[in-house]
Design a protein around this nucleic acid. Structure first.
Lengths: 343, 343
DNA sequence: GTTTGGCAATCCGCCATTTAGAGTGCTAAA
DNA sequence: TTTAGCACTCTAAATGGCGGATTGCCAAAC
């Protein structure tokens, strides 16, 4: 949209209005902008500018005789053209680093911690999603009989992640058969990405001397083993603070919000679909296709471990302190990626 | 408390009052009880009885000229002396069985499903906690080098559960050393419970010909490997329906509630502390020591897999349909235990 | 002695009305 | 182009009255 030709006064008014609204959650009137922000203009002049901004669809009045509040497009312009990222305090930085690097914890615990710290220092909902395995390169697969009729399959991926699947088998699998299967799998599949393996498994398992029963087993459970089904785990923290924000005064908003959170699968899918490319992604209000999210914004970023990518970020009302959040999410994502290299 | 000498009229009034209140959430007056429940008494007589019940602390008036509502003690008497468990409908039964036995899913997925079905058919919060590993009997331990400096430890437990831990090691561990360590561990530890192993590991690893480096490694990471730290996982579903109940009209109640849910550790600990013994346990309102739970009730039960026990149940406001919930939780716990034997 | 009808008293929830305040849009003057 | 002034509009909060529900108590009835 052609908002590039906004003049500088309009931009400044929009900026001041949004900054003030983010703090107070109250519609902002012309007087406040004129006085508090010392723009050297009278309220009447500001009013004229505000009318222009309203016609452009960047701000709106909840009702006559109220001040203005930003629309989704208004926030979009703010984020694209006016955002000054706010440097983190040392305290926050060290808090983040401390949490993320917390010793010998597993990936899961780290991500849970991370969502907690994100929630805490932002007072919004901190979210983390564990990395997709799909892009992971198989380093090795192990088959371990653990009990009668149970076979534990361990899929180890470069960068140290591992996934275990418990499968049922007929109880009389021969150990030798199993070993053979194992080595065939390793010979033929190691070095490929899981996604790739999934697509080409049929071909790759042709012409072996393995037990056909086992071959069948592995072909049949293709999706369970190689697919990503619901492996990505979602952690979130900070719901309590979030719902005390004024935008959740209406109970229905809260119910909507929890419907959203309980439908983890679609939420994960959605977040992953949005976090394309490098760096921070911000989506605002109605830009989020999920209905229950139409009054929320998202500040997210990918993080990396090995070849695999996960997502972390913040979910909150469209009225959120974007400039702070961008720095926080960015710094956290980077710290997390660093920490996971070490892991 | 000596509520055993309540006369039968008092009991019937209490019962009717609670049944009605559970349905409507409105204070119940003497007229309703007299008419709706056809007790053959006039409202005035009921009023007298209600005064008695109030003096005993079983019911109370929110304000003059309102009907009465049950107190926590009132619910307690109701549950202990007046509860008629309501048989499940066939529809619900088959829903539960269907979900719980849903094919080849892993434990985690089953428990997640279970919490969902509990939430759905009760309109309260369905909760499941995965079993404690501590009582599990080790069937086998495997050591698998997955990458430079990484060692994957797989702890398999009778009944098919397995836990994997990724450890850091110096990169030049010798495969032969590892195999030896593995077989020593299996020889000396298989058949013992994890809890037992944890306590006696030092002694049991004395006098071996294993690499002292490896021995040290295993002793050092004792807690990570054998301990239960946060392994119990909590699933819950139904928050959205729960908070639409009238008792959550006050926003503070909702925030309290989510503080409770986000503090998973203490919630898990609490639920486990309450679920002693066989069968259903019901705790009401202030009987729950956690502050944020003082206006909620809990209907929980243990379930079993191998030697391990987990907990499932329902969390909701003290005004909950106890008689239904008891049957549902009971049936679900049993179905779950059955399904996990099969697993 | 127990139960009941009658009745005054109490308190809540709802509705309409009022009031104060905030902010606007427009117009005319600077 | 900017500003001051002013009539207008709308909200939020306060006020007051009314109807309804329920109680407690007392005296009469069973």
């Amino acid at each position: 949209m052609a908002f590039e030709n906004l003049n500088s006064r309009e931009l400044r008014v929009l900026q001041n209005l949004i900054n003030h609204y983010i703090q107070t959650a109250d519609p902002v009137g012309s007087r406040v902008i004129a006085n508090k922000f010392r723009m050297g203009l009278s309220p009447a002049t500001i009013r004229n500018t505000m009318q222009d901004l309203e016609e452009l669809g960047l701000i709106r009045q909840p009702h006559t005789s109220a001040g203005r509040i930003p629309t989704d497009s208004g926030y979009r312009v703010f984020v694209d053209m006016l955002l000054k990222t706010e440097p983190l305090t040392e305290a926050d930085k060290s808090k983040i680093r401390g949490m993320v690097n917390d010793g010998n914890k597993g990936l899961d615990a780290i991500l849970s911690q991370t969502s907690r710290i994100l929630g805490e220092i932002t007072s919004q909902l901190g979210i983390t999603i564990s990395p997709k395995f799909d892009e992971g390169v198989l380093t090795r697969i192990d088959l371990i009989p653990v009990a009668d009729g149970k076979l534990l399959v361990i899929v180890a991926v470069r960068s140290g992640l591992a996934k275990t699947i418990l499968m049922e088998v007929e109880s009389d699998i021969d150990i030798a058969e199993l070993r053979q299967m194992e080595s065939v799998l390793n010979e033929r599949l190691a070095g490929l990405t899981l996604g790739h393996i999934r697509k080409t498994l049929n071909d790759r398992l042709a012409n072996t001397s393995c037990s056909s029963r086992l071959i069948k087993l592995f072909l049949d459970s293709k999706s369970v083993i190689w697919e990503d089904q619901g492996d990505e785990k979602l952690h979130y923290t900070g719901a309590d603070k979030l719902i005390s924000q004024p935008e959740f005064a209406d109970r229905n908003r809260i119910t909507d919000f929890f419907k959203l959170l309980e439908n983890q699968k679609s939420l994960i899918e959605f977040l992953e679909s949005k976090s394309v490319g490098e760096g921070i992604v911000i989506t605002i209000g109605s830009e989020n296709e999920i209905n229950e999210m139409r009054s929320c914004s998202l500040v997210i970023s990918k993080y990396q471990t090995g070849n695999n990518f996960g997502v972390i970020g913040i979910l909150g009302p469209t009225r959120m302190p974007y400039s702070k959040l961008v720095s926080i999410v960015d710094y956290t994502a980077k710290s997390l990626s660093d920490a996971l290299i070490d892991l």
